[in-house]
């Protein structure tokens, strides 16, 4: 009979009309993200980072711009870590490259922005920066102290030699 198929199809729709709901109201209800979800913003754990720049070297699209400065004791520290969101492929290679596990995703997928200037994400937070200055100062103080000790030692040796 012509139209039988159409009616069967409508039967399916009818069944679903009364059945379990397949959708949910998005902005009000949100799905939890999975454990491995890669997306949202990168988060840097400043205390773990050793400024080795492996993450930036692993990035296929040069989406990570780093500013690394050596302290007075020639140890390297991360001053600025910019994630260029617009260039990012969300491939996870940076996160996997980090041996210190200093990088992670914040899983907040709503990252669209109005302006392209907002697509540069600075990962070093105010706290991170404070930490950065703290370690820089500490290294400076230590280096100065060491230099002083060395100088005193040299002085002592000199005077000792004279006597």
């Amino acid at each position: 009979m012509f139209g039988e198929g159409l009616l069967t199809g409508m039967g399916v729709t009818w069944k679903h009309f009364w059945g379990k709901k397949e959708t949910f109201c998005y902005p009000e209800e949100k799905l939890p993200m999975t454990e491995r979800f890669r997306g949202g913003h990168l988060v840097l754990d400043h205390k773990k980072c050793i400024a080795c720049s492996l993450c930036s070297l692993a990035c296929p699209n040069q989406a990570i711009k780093l500013k690394i400065v050596p302290d007075a004791k020639k140890k390297r520290h991360m001053q600025s870590y910019v994630h260029l969101v617009g260039r990012c492929l969300y491939c996870n290679l940076c996160v996997e490259a980090c041996n210190m596990h200093a990088l992670s995703w914040d899983k907040n997928y709503a990252i669209s922005s109005w302006h392209k200037e907002e697509m540069e994400d600075e990962l070093v937070t105010a706290e991170g920066l404070a930490y950065f200055h703290e370690v820089m100062e500490k290294a400076k103080a230590e280096a100065e102290a060491e230099a002083k000790v060395a100088a005193e030692k040299a002085e002592a040796e000199k005077t000792g030699g004279d006597a």
Binding site: T34, R36, F37, R38, G39, L89, C91, N92, E96, W105
Partner: peptide
């Protein structure tokens, strides 16, 4: 797929030499 590799498109799961992570 989201469970396996954390993405719903552009999976980047199969890698040279194997896969990026074991099945959960």
């Amino acid at each position: 797929f989201d469970l396996v590799c954390g993405a719903r498109m552009t999976f980047h799961y199969i890698r040279v030499g194997g896969v990026s992570a074991d099945l959960p």
